[in-house]
């Protein structure tokens, strides 16, 4: 039986189809302003028997497509455990939220923490800061790694950080150093969250921000251990939902 998982996040939607634990196909699109239309388009032409939804749009999807749902916490736990067996701690930084999850030795969620209700320290924060400094989002991390110095950025709020960045630029500071300081501030916050749940390894970093090489390097430095990143870190939630669907009793 083919099981699909769909992860409707604030920035992107991912779809994964599995059969007997093997990934058959993956797809991704932007969430946009009409997530259900985008989800419908993503499903178009896909072949599966059952589907489970996760992510912030899961309840909308449940109504529109009459599908069961699971929270992204449980979906990430499942997805990470399948990709990296034995993982004990997960950091997921997505478009608009971030979470740290501790898993027990069976791969089940033991404890979790989520960020506050604003987008401080998430993908959206990095996206806006990249734009303020004139970097492409895809190159933001690698450019930050080229910095000679590290500047300390105090503000975590997107609005305040933007003014802080503007004044640093006005002082003639190197934009790469500012970029590195911004990454440091996100990492400090993430490490605090991880330490509240557990920092037992192996630690897995997932979600869109895991694609940023600077984030990984700084996390490893702060946690003093290797941080593992799945091959496609944005697909973890959708994969987890697909696998949970296949485990569901009918």
């Amino acid at each position: 039986m083919r099981h699909a998982g769909i992860d409707i996040g604030s920035r992107t939607i991912e779809l994964v189809v599995v059969n007997d634990g093997d990934i058959l196909s993956t797809r991704q699109t932007d969430t946009g302003f009409d997530p259900m239309a985008q989800a419908g388009e993503l499903l178009n032409g896909m072949d599966f028997d059952r589907i489970m939804a996760t992510g912030y749009g899961r309840n909308l999807f449940e109504i529109a497509f009459d599908a069961p749902t699971v929270t992204e916490i449980k979906a990430y736990g499942m997805g990470v455990s399948a990709l990296i067996p034995g993982a004990r701690t997960i950091l997921d930084i997505g478009g608009q939220d971030s979470k740290a999850i501790a898993l027990n030795d069976m791969g089940a969620v033991k404890k979790f923490e989520m960020n506050d209700r604003c987008a401080a320290g998430t993908g959206k924060f990095l996206e806006i800061m990249a734009k303020t400094l004139g970097f492409e989002l895809a190159e933001f991390g690698s450019e930050a790694l080229k910095a000679q110095d590290d500047l300390h950025i105090n503000s975590m709020c997107t609005v305040f950080a933007e003014s802080e960045v503007t004044s640093l630029v006005a002082k003639g500071e190197d934009r790469r150093a500012i970029a590195l300081g911004l990454h440091q501030s996100v990492v400090r916050r993430a490490v605090g969250m991880i330490k509240r749940v557990s920092s037992e390894g192996p630690i897995v970093f997932a979600g869109g921000v895991a694609k940023n090489p600077c984030m990984r390097r700084l996390l490893e430095e702060a946690l003093k251990q290797e941080v593992l990143i799945p091959e496609d870190p944005q697909m973890v939630g959708a994969l987890g939902a697909a696998l949970l669907s296949s485990r569901m009793k009918t």
């Binding site: 929270t71 916490i73 939220d97 979790f112 989520m114």
Partner: peptide, 15 residues
């Protein structure tokens, strides 16, 4: 913050 609370509460109940 209803939806943010909902995801935390649902995840806690799942756990």
């Amino acid at each position: 913050d209803t939806e943010q609370l909902r995801v935390r509460i649902e995840a806690y109940l799942e756990m």
